[in-house]
Write a protein that binds this DNA or RNA. Structure first.
Lengths: 156, 156
DNA sequence: CAATATATATAAGTATGCTTAACTAATTAG
DNA sequence: CTAATTAGTTAAGCATACTTATATATATTG
């Protein structure tokens, strides 16, 4: 299909632009908060799923359970997550964000604010509405797709 | 303005969804290629600007020139970048991607392929066209805005 | 109940990623 | 031409981020 090709191409171009911007913003943010990019990444994963067992976090980050355990150790030590026993299986520890963890992530998106505001003012109301519709569509569709793990498995 | 608020909200939502996906994909990709997320981030920055002096790379990544020099050392050792003397100022070393560096980054976007294809097939042609228009608009506007460094400076 | 499997944690070891301080080379200013 | 500044590297030191191997607690299975 022709529009699929154009769709992938437009999305790819935007990903390059966005990746470049966000790496720079997240680098500054992480430094300001005494975090590494890896730690910030782990926090995003936990936030998205609500909670994560040690092994499952290791799977999405592609690291061993031992490494995931140590990562959670450091995050817990900084007060960003807590580990609680899973009532269904007492071997399992579920990691979830603390209030501090939540607010830290919320703040991490604010660092993009200047850029996004500049972007907003450079667009007409009509253009903004067009983009809003597009993003709503994308967000909705993405959430209905399978979780990344499945794609990852099918790639290997 | 009302549509600006909705615009920022839609963009924010999409950023959360996309950040979550891309961290997982880039984690897997980095591991497969023996890279860290930090190294991948540095490569993206160099790619975007074409070349980077040691100090300037340090600025966008918010690290000291010494750290940037060491980072480039490791990337050069892996054959992903080369450093060449700036003809205008022989103190300056310009880092740029090698063919291997370029192809590695190109490949890093392919790892999103399964997801993007699934996304594409879940959308009608009409919806795809709407999204294409939106992304073209965004990519174009973003490239005309000032570089991230300026925003960063104004934040501190 | 005993044996096995699973989830996590801990220990030891290595590479990365950062810092500050000291050093070298090139440029700029007086 | 000398002094001061700037760009980059190097060294020492420390925290992070991973690995494998081992240990411990809980679950599952025969």
């Amino acid at each position: 299909m022709d529009s699929s090709q154009a769709f992938l191409s437009a999305l790819h171009k935007w990903m390059k632009v966005y990746t470049h911007r966000s790496i720079s913003y997240f680098s500054v943010f992480a430094k300001e908060h005494g975090l590494s990019l890896s730690q910030l990444g782990a926090l995003f994963q936990i936030q998205h799923k609500g909670c994560f067992s040690v092994s499952n976090l290791g799977e999405v980050l592609d690291i061993t359970p031992a490494a995931a355990s140590q990562m959670l150790d450091r995050l817990a030590h900084q007060g960003l997550i807590v580990r609680s026993e899973d009532p269904h299986d007492r071997r399992v520890k579920q990691a979830s964000l603390t209030a501090l963890g939540e607010s830290t992530l919320a703040e991490s998106f604010l660092i993009h604010k200047n850029w996004l505001n500049a972007l907003a003012t450079s667009l007409s109301s009509e253009e903004q509405l067009q983009i809003i519709t597009a993003f709503d569509l994308l967000s909705e569709k993405t959430e209905h797709l399978a979780d990344p793990q499945h794609d990852v498995e099918s790639l290997s």
